[in-house]
Amino acid sequence: MAIVRMDNVGIVVDDLDLAVEFFTVLGMELEGRQLIEGEWAGRVVGLSGMRSEIAMMRIPGAPGKLELATYHAPELLGRGAQAIPHTLGFHRVMFAVDDLDDTIARLGPLGGELLGEVVDYRGLVRLCYFRGPGGIVIGLAEDAA
C-alpha cells in the first residue's frame, strides 16, 4: 500500500478574499470557491454546526493545490496569533519562484513581510520565510543557478 498523491495543503484564514488575492499575486490561479456546510461536513472535521467557505488555488501547469478556508461557524480560534517557526504545530508552504526580489516586492503591498532575511544557501538557492495576510507563512526559494 502506498500514497497515490498529495491533493492539497489546507490553510485557515480570517480574510478569504485577501488570501485569494495574495496567492493570485504570488502566481497561483483560483480554481473555485464554495460554501461547505451541513451535517456531513461537521462529521468530517469534528466540528458540530460547521459552516465554512473554501477557495481552491492551483499553480498553473503544476500538480498540487492550496485550499484556503475561512470558518463562519464555529468562530475562528487564535485570531491575531503570530506563530514563529519553532512553535509546535507551526506550518508553512514553500514555493519555488523565478525572481525572489520581484515576488517580495509584489506581495509587500498586500501586507506581506519578511520573517527574517533573504539568505543565499551555499550559492545554490536564495530563500526566505514571508508572512502574509492573517499570519500565513510561506517559504520562497529561487534557484541561484
Rank of each mutant, 00 (worst) to 15 (best):
I3D: 02
M94W: 07
A141L: 09
M50T: 14
K65F: 07
D98M: 09
M1C: 10
F130V: 03
C128H: 07
R131K: 04
S52G: 08
Y71T: 06
W40I: 11
L77F: 14
R5Q: 13
A62M: 11
G135H: 02
E39F: 08
T103W: 01
D101R: 12
M94Y: 13
A55Q: 02
G78N: 08
A55T: 03
V44L: 13
M1E: 14
V45A: 08
M94S: 11
P85M: 02
G38N: 05
V44T: 12
P74T: 09
M50K: 06
W40E: 14
A73I: 09
G42T: 07
T103N: 03
G32W: 01
G132M: 03
V45K: 06
S52V: 09
L66M: 02
M28R: 00
A19E: 05
L35V: 15
M94P: 00
W40H: 10
G112L: 03
G61V: 09
F95I: 01
L107V: 04
V4E: 15
L47D: 10
E117S: 12
V119H: 09
E39Y: 11
T24H: 01
R122D: 15
V44G: 04
L76W: 08
G38A: 05
R33Y: 01
L47V: 15
I138N: 00
R106F: 09
L35S: 13
A55L: 01
I84E: 15
E75D: 13
E53F: 01
A83D: 07
M6G: 06
G61A: 07
L140E: 05
V9M: 06
L26M: 05
V20Q: 03
V20Y: 01
E31W: 10
D120T: 13
V125E: 12
G49A: 07
I136T: 13
I104A: 07
Q34N: 09
R92K: 11
G108L: 11
P133V: 14
Y129I: 00
V4A: 12
A141E: 06
D15C: 04
M6I: 15
G10D: 06
I36K: 02
E29Q: 14
V9Y: 06
L47I: 15
H86L: 11
V137F: 03
P60L: 09
I59L: 12
V45E: 07
E39G: 04
L18W: 11
A41L: 07
A105I: 14
Y71G: 00
G132N: 04
S48G: 11
